[in-house]
């Protein structure tokens, strides 16, 4: 079986990553539940990961895949701290609605 990058044009991967990233942006703008917003951020990170792997395969350069490892490490750290903050917010406000967090809003 051929590698996908030999039979699929690179633009299809670019388009797919763009659509997934936009879905993530839509989730951040559309929803008020902080957990869903976190999940949308994960979706955006994964769209970028997919694009990095596609380019790495296209250019036959393993550096792109090593970058994906670093993005995974950053995503894990982000989720650990973010969910801890969310627990803290829930403990204080009894809700996960981000609109209750408006003390810093102008």
């Amino acid at each position: 079986m051929n590698s996908a990058i030999q039979v699929i044009p690179l633009e299809w991967y670019l388009l797919l990553s763009t659509v997934l990233f936009t879905i993530g942006v839509l989730g951040v703008l559309f929803r008020r539940n902080a957990i869903i917003i976190f999940m949308s951020i994960e979706l955006m990170l994964n769209a970028v990961n997919l694009l990095l792997v596609a380019f790495s395969s296209f250019l036959s350069d393993s550096k792109g895949q090593v970058f994906v490892f670093f993005i995974m490490a950053v995503a894990a750290a982000e989720v650990a701290v973010g969910l801890a903050i969310l627990m803290m917010v829930y403990r204080n406000t009894k809700s996960s609605d981000i609109n209750t967090l408006n003390k810093l809003k102008w």
Binding site: L20, I23, L26, G27, L43
Partner: peptide, 9 residues
């Protein structure tokens, strides 16, 4: 992927 991503949101 696109369908499940939309369902997440």
């Amino acid at each position: 992927a696109i369908m499940f991503g939309s369902m997440v949101v």
